[in-house]
Design a protein around this nucleic acid. Sequence first.
DNA 1: ATGGATTGCGGGTATATGCCCGCGTAAGGC
DNA 2: GCCTTACGCGGGCATATACCCGCAATCCAT
Lengths: 132, 132
Amino acid sequence: MSVPCICTTLRSASRRMIAFYDETIAPVGVNIAQFSLMRSIARVEPVTLTALGRRVELDRSTIGRNVRVLEKMGLVELGRGEDQREATVALTEAGHKVLEDGAPLWDGAQKALDDRLGVEFMRQLHVALDSL
Amino acid sequence: MSVPCICTTLRSASRRMIAFYDETIAPVGVNIAQFSLMRSIARVEPVTLTALGRRVELDRSTIGRNVRVLEKMGLVELGRGEDQREATVALTEAGHKVLEDGAPLWDGAQKALDDRLGVEFMRQLHVALDSL
DNA sequence: ATGGATTGCGGGTATATGCCCGCGTAAGGC
DNA sequence: GCCTTACGCGGGCATATACCCGCAATCCAT
């Protein structure tokens, strides 16, 4: 009894980390999920929603909705692919600027954790989480 | 570049684990978040929403909403505390039965992970995540 | 080329989660 | 005992996330 499952522990840690990163990245006007998604877009833009979803392991409909929020914020632009079914997404100037401005904040959060817990610990944690 | 932040890695791992546990626990009719919350309730019922929220580190409003879903499912009962402001929650018979029936499923998921990754690995991961 | 299978989306539905506001109750200071 | 402060909640608002359905476009085998 009272042994929490790894899932609960993971969800809890995830919520705490999200709160920490959200606060860190807040000055540029997005949350960490949005920042992270924009970083993913930046690497392959323009990209279709389905392809992006596969890359980041999120449901396509989730990508579609999240991207629409970013569109309303003027950070990404939606377009059509050669295949008329495809909806593509790419960062706007403003979007690129957010990534640029956010990078040092993001680095700061990363560094704060490395300092507190040790680079090696963080590296191993990364590997461990990826193996789940 | 391309170094994903621990937050992203954590969120991703969390989603995967949630999907795994959701599937595992699905036969009893709840998801892992609900099962986990019910387990927490079981340890201290009847308990006020605020007290429960503090225990599980969730916003009170989140607890309130999640508990209402469980109430509609007939798994918990809401009541009033001595303090007229307080709303209390306790498991119903059906709720206790879900925990009982779900326990072996939950154990199975736990064991599957222990087998695949090693008990010691899982123990260390627990400790690591709690330290975040 | 034509009809069936596949693919890509949008929208509906549902849960999880956090923050903020306003209301009503309880507790404390004087 | 009264008034101010603190506390507990519900509801509103917003995001993240998944699954399913139906539509439209594309592809493929015959």
